[in-house]
C-alpha cells in the first residue's frame, strides 16, 4: 500500500486549481512547506500571499479578497486555522458568508512530536457550530486532493481538515468528491462503523479483525461532517441496529457527537464512540499517540464488541 500524507493531497489539489481556476488565490501564515503550497507559490507568485505569522490578519484578508470574486484558500496548522482565529472566522467569514476555504493541516494527535500546543482536537466542533460553514475531513491523499478541487466549486465558507503523517493511500485517484455524500466502503449487517479522516483506514483494518470474529461490519467514510449525510447514516443503521463512530478528534463536538444527535432524534440505538476523551495530547510518534489515546483498529474492534452486546 502506497503511504502518503493528506497534506500533500491538498498541495496537489491546490497546484491543479492554480492551473485550472484563475480565481483561486492562496494565503499562508509562514508554513508554506508544511502545507505543501510551494508549487502553487512558484507557479503563481502573483496569486500567492505570504502573510507572515499573523493568522487573524490572514483570515480577514481572505474574507476581503472574496469581494471582487477571488476564491481564497488559507493555509496553516489546524490549531491556528480555528481556535486562534475563531472570532475572525465567525464574524468576517461565517456570518459574512464569504467564499473562503480554510485549509488546515496537522490536525489531531498524529502531528506527533510537537505536542499538545499544536495538536488541535476541538476544531471540528468549533467549525461545525458556525452557521454557513461546511466541514470536511478526508481520509487519504487521493481524497484530500479531490476534496480540494471540489471545495473550489462550492460557494461559501469551508473548513478542510487534513494531517501530517504518511498514511495508506487507498481511495481512487480519479474519484469525484461529492460534498455531503458519505461513501460506503464495505457492506455489513452487524454494526455500522462511521469513520472520518485518518480513522477510516483504521476502521477498514478493524473490519478484517471483526470478520475473523464472525462480525460483519459496514464501513462508511463520513468525509463531510457538516452537512452530515443523514440519509446514508439512517439507511445503514436501520439495517445494522448499532453504531461505532471513529475520529481523531475530541468526543465532545466531533463526528460522534453529530451522530449521537441524529440517532437520539431519529433512531435511538446503541452507539459507542472512538475518539479522544476530554484530554489534551502530548509529544510522541503518531503511532504511539494513536495507541495511547485509543484511536487504533483495536480500539474500534473493542467498541464494536461492546456496542453489539448492547443491541
Amino acid at each position: 500500500m502506497e503511504m502518503k500524507d493528506t497534506r500533500s493531497g491538498f498541495g496537489a489539489g491546490l497546484t491543479e486549481l492554480g492551473k485550472t481556476n484563475s480565481k483561486v488565490v492562496a494565503l499562508c501564515a509562514d508554513l508554506t512547506g508544511s502545507l505543501k503550497m510551494n508549487e502553487f507559490q512558484n507557479n503563481h507568485p502573483e496569486r500567492f500571499f505570504q502573510v507572515g505569522i499573523a493568522e487573524a490578519n490572514m483570515m480577514g484578508i481572505a474574507a476581503g479578497m472574496t469581494i471582487g470574486g477571488k476564491i481564497p484558500f488559507t493555509g496553516t496548522f489546524a490549531n491556528f486555522s480555528t481556535s486562534r482565529v475563531y472570532d475572525q472566522i465567525r464574524q468576517s467569514i461565517a456570518y459574512s458568508n464569504k467564499n473562503v476555504k480554510i485549509c488546515a493541516s496537522h490536525a489531531g494527535v498524529t502531528l506527533g512530536e510537537d505536542g499538545a500546543t499544536h495538536q488541535v482536537l476541538e476544531d471540528i466542533g468549533m467549525m461545525k457550530m458556525l452557521p454557513h460553514m461546511t466541514v470536511i475531513n478526508p481520509c487519504d491523499f487521493n481524497q484530500t486532493k479531490a476534496a480540494t478541487l471540489a471545495i473550489a466549486e462550492h460557494m461559501g465558507p469551508v473548513y478542510l481538515r487534513f494531517g501530517r503523517p504518511k498514511v495508506p493511500n487507498f481511495t481512487d485517484a480519479n474519484q469525484i468528491f461529492e460534498i455531503g455524500k458519505a461513501i460506503n466502503l464495505k457492506d455489513g449487517n452487524d454494526v455500522s462503523i462511521l469513520a472520518t479522516g485518518h480513522l477510516v483506514w483504521e476502521a477498514l483494518e478493524a473490519a478484517k479483525i471483526l470478520n475473523e470474529l464472525n462480525i460483519n461490519a459496514e464501513i462508511i467514510n463520513i468525509h463531510t461532517i457538516k452537512p452530515l449525510d443523514k440519509d446514508a447514516v439512517i439507511k445503514s443503521v436501520s439495517k445494522t441496529r448499532c453504531v461505532v463512530t471513529a475520529e481523531e478528534h475530541m468526543l465532545n463536538g466531533g463526528l460522534g457527537d453529530s451522530i449521537a444527535q441524529l440517532l437520539s432524534r431519529e433512531m435511538p440505538l446503541p452507539l459507542e464512540m472512538v475518539g479522544v476523551n476530554d484530554t489534551f495530547g502530548e509529544s510522541g510518534t503518531p503511532r504511539q499517540l494513536m495507541e495511547k489515546y485509543g484511536l487504533t483498529s483495536n480500539d474500534i474492534v473493542n467498541a464494536v464488541k461492546k456496542v453489539i452486546l448492547r443491541k
Binding site: R47, A56, I61, M65, G68, D87
Partner: peptide
C-alpha cells in the same frame, strides 16, 4: 454592507483583502 463588523479590529484586514483583489483585477 460588504462584511459584518462589530467585533473590533477586523475591518482593516478585510479592507486590505479587498484592496489586493482590486489590484489583481486591475481595478
Amino acid at each position: 454592507i460588504r462584511v459584518a463588523t462589530g467585533s473590533l479590529g477586523q475591518g482593516l484586514s478585510v479592507a486590505i483583502g479587498a484592496a489586493l483583489t482590486k489590484k489583481l483585477n486591475n481595478d
